[in-house]
Structure formats: C-alpha cells, structure tokens
C-alpha cells in the first residue's frame, strides 16, 4: 500500500497505460515499436494484478504470483518476436509494417 494513494488512481494509470498500448499497436509504423506497445499492455495487466492483490485481497498472494508468471512469459514472447523480426530483416532489410504486406485480403 502506498500512503495517500487510493486504488482508483493506480487503476486509472494502468487503464491509461493499456489504451496507450492498444493505440500504439494500431498506429506504429515500426515492428519493434509495435512490440513495445504490446509490452505496455502486458505491464498494465501486471500492475493491475499486483495492485488489486495488495489493496483488495492482501491475505492471499494469487495476484502477485500471477504477475511474476506474466513477466516471465512476456520475456519469452518478446524474445521469440524479436528473433522472427530479425529473420524477416535478413530477407527484406526492413522492419517497417508496410513492407510486410505481400499477403493481403
């Protein structure tokens, strides 16, 4: 618990973070930036879990444990995505979203 800050402020921040992530995913032109936007979404959920656990249900640690697992899985996900992006970069020398469009409709 943080003195003087209620759960509403923190949940507002995580919701804003979440929607920044969604906005970034839709508008960014660079694959790496898209990946960073996804990290924002995942981190919003991580903070959500920890805060809800701490403020609302402090007698059990379910939310905190969940948060640790999300961090681990997010790292694996990023590693995999970056390796695929690198493989793509080897072939087309670009990490722009507009260059990954030989398949459409």
């Amino acid at each position: 618990m943080i003195a003087g800050i209620s759960i509403y402020e923190i949940l507002t921040v995580t919701s804003i973070l979440f929607f920044i992530g969604i906005y970034g995913f839709i508008t960014r032109k660079n694959l790496i930036s898209v990946l960073i936007s996804i990290e924002l979404i995942l981190n919003a959920s991580v903070v959500n879990f920890v805060v809800i656990n701490k403020y609302l249900y402090p007698d059990m640690l379910q939310g905190v444990i969940f948060a640790i697992f999300i961090i681990a899985v997010a790292a694996a996900e990023t590693a995999l995505a970056v390796s695929i992006i690198i493989n793509l970069y080897r072939q087309i020398s670009s990490v722009e979203v507009k260059d990954t469009e030989i398949m459409k409709y």
């Binding site: 995913f25 898209v34 979404i41 995999l80 995505a81 793509l88 990954t100 030989i102």
Partner: peptide, 16 residues
Amino acid sequence: RISSEAGIKFILSAAL
C-alpha cells in the same frame, strides 16, 4: 519471406 511474414503477423496478434 512469406513464412517469416506469417510468423511475425501471428506472434504480434497473439501477444496482443
């Protein structure tokens, strides 16, 4: 190239 493109599309949408 087409396979890498499929991979990147899949991983990004799956992560989202």
